[in-house]
């Protein structure tokens, strides 16, 4: 509707306007957690909303994850075979126990299985945010959006050397405004939750019921 656009914009342009005020971002710059305290802070914030943490190594995480799923009775995990993490998982996944399911075709062709058939989804992260206890996810063709959304358990890999103080500082350090943003960028700070019934906290209302973070040293 081009006429709506033009008449709205011309009304806005006709209004009296002063100069745009500047913004003092020093309160965002000042926020600082010493590097050695960032992981503890992130864990504390995320555990407060029921995220679960496990320590493993960069060399060993696929085997560790397999063992963890078996131990927790989680029968299957969906992964993006084109991603670096997905390739590691496919190559090093032990026989038996939990099943690894490749997310290798468009969602539309296996919605039913994704919604009802797989129990967990694996994603990597770009890093974490100490202040709020958040993981940064940039889904892609190789690591699709639904991995952290549809299966009831979301498993995320976190490199403890990639922790930022705040969201604002992370965004600047990673140069988001200068790069092409992904179709969908995400911060994930816990499992899905709600307090809509009498302000009582309940987990797993629509998204994952559990968020498992593997710290890969």
């Amino acid at each position: 509707m081009p006429d709506a656009r033009d008449s709205i914009l011309s009304r806005l342009r006709a209004a009296p306007r002063g100069p745009a005020p500047g913004s003092d971002f020093s309160v965002m710059e000042d926020r600082f957690f010493p590097p050695e305290e960032r992981l503890a802070r992130l864990r504390k914030m995320m555990e407060a909303v029921s995220a679960e943490f496990f320590e493993t190594t960069k060399a060993d995480w696929p085997r560790f994850l397999h063992g963890l799923l078996v131990q927790q009775g989680i029968g299957s995990i969906l992964y993006g075979p084109g991603s670096e993490a997905g390739q590691r998982l496919a190559e090093e996944w032990p026989e038996g126990g939990a099943r690894a399911v490749a997310y290798d075709r468009p969602m539309d062709s296996f919605k039913e299985e994704m919604f009802n058939g797989v129990e967990a989804g694996l994603t990597s992260t770009l890093g974490g945010i100490a202040e709020t206890g958040s993981l940064i996810l940039w889904p892609s063709a190789d690591e699709p959006r639904a991995l952290s959304l549809v299966p009831p358990v979301h498993v995320a890999l976190l490199d403890p050397d990639k922790l930022h103080n705040t969201f604002w500082q992370a965004m600047r350090a990673l140069g988001w405004s200068q790069t092409q943003m992904p179709a969908n960028a995400l911060l994930v700070s816990g499992p899905s939750k709600t307090t809509d019934i009498e302000q009582t906290l309940a987990y797993g209302v629509h998204g994952p019921k559990r968020l498992i973070v593997l710290i890969t040293r």
């Binding site: 909303v49 075709r105 468009p106 709020t132 179709a183 960028a185 994930v188 700070s189």
Partner: peptide
């Protein structure tokens, strides 16, 4: 809350080669 569980930033529809969105 210090932050909500999800911050969802949408910049485009599904891009070529992407499997969802």
């Amino acid at each position: 809350q210090p932050i909500t569980t999800y911050v969802n930033m949408i910049t485009s529809p599904r891009r070529p080669g992407e499997k969802d969105g």
